[in-house]
Design a binder for these strands. Structure first.
Lengths: 184, 184
DNA sequence: TCAGTTTCGGAGTGATCAGTCCGTTTGTCA
DNA sequence: TGACAAACGGACTGATCACTCCGAAACTGA
């Protein structure tokens, strides 16, 4: 692969990520191409359809999430790692929401798109939970499947409250307290 | 207003609600018109733009939600009314896959899209919360704005977990426990 | 029943978008 | 450096969508 091709491909994913996050999946291919400083032809040489570009963006995001979980687990105490992850996930949330919904709207099964990343993600969730449960930071009945659903929900709730810092803080508190071991 | 016009208008809102819920906002005006058994011209006579039809659908949904909150408050003990409302909102969302969208639309554009209903909705939330706080069923720092965001998130989380009853139960527990007064 | 008016239906319009095609440019390697 | 394949750019195409327009149909009140 030629050097300029590699550069353009990476840049396209990066720019597409930003534009999809900021303006939804409705942004036209031409807009993305212009923002990346290339022609539309280049977009479609690297990605056969717009949907393929969306998938790439989505997978890239999931990979970053997994990386982040692993970094936190390696450098923090388990309970702290877990809640730091939850909190950070909020920042990442709005963008992920938009992409996942775009894929669903396009009739794509998100689980199918993420099939390559899914095992890593599941493992990261499992390890985060196991560590946090071991030190008693998280309720013992919280399983990876529920955590996944909660993160999706948190992402959505955070997006909804993003312009109201007080509400956003309350939302985070509710999630965090709800995930902690319940007294009684 | 002529009898057939009234009938068509109501039918359009009803059909549009179903189609938007099932297939997203991307459904074309012509699809909606055909499903309602009318021509596109009829759609645009009743609603100047597609967006106006969307708004009408949202407002109708929100009104139903407000009605339900009021009924619960009138017939149940405050804490029970609050949690029954939460639980029902989820069932409704998971089944119809639509309330979250409606709430997001209301939140993102409260002053605009749902200008007529927003005060009622806010009042219903405020009253539900006030009652529940009075009897100590809900944490005192939970405000209507945060509740609104949490409902959106809960609806989304529940939808994500709908095929896994154990995860769904855990998700509901996390939300309920998180909304209860925090010990310490 | 019938005139008068409202409402309807759907072909037509202009705009936009995903995706194609090919002449031109650029990186690569001998 | 020069030859050549790889990659590029953007005009172009066909499809689709929101919305318009007006002759036909249907409701209503007398």
């Amino acid at each position: 692969m030629r050097a300029d091709a590699v550069r353009n491909r990476a840049r396209l994913v990066e720019i597409a990520d930003e534009l999809f996050a900021a303006r939804g999946h409705g942004v036209s291919t031409e807009t993305i191409a212009k923002a990346a400083g290339v022609g539309v032809g280049t977009v479609f040489r690297h990605f056969p359809t717009k949907e393929a570009l969306l998938r790439e963006v989505y997978v890239t995001r999931l990979e970053r999430l997994v990386d982040r979980a692993e970094t936190l687990m390696a450098h923090r105490e388990p309970g702290e790692a877990f809640f730091a992850f939850i909190t950070e996930a909020v920042d990442w949330a709005a963008a992920k929401n938009a992409t996942a919904e775009a894929l669903v709207a396009a009739g794509v099964d998100v689980a199918d798109v993420a099939v390559d990343v899914a095992p890593d993600l599941r493992r990261a969730f499992r390890d985060l939970l196991a560590g946090a449960k071991r030190v008693g930071a998280v309720r013992p009945d919280l399983e990876p499947a529920a955590l996944s659903a909660l993160l999706v929900g948190l992402a959505r709730a955070a997006e909804h409250a993003k312009d109201d810092p007080i509400a956003l803080a309350a939302v985070l508190d509710v999630f965090r307290d709800g995930m902690r071991p319940h007294p009684a």
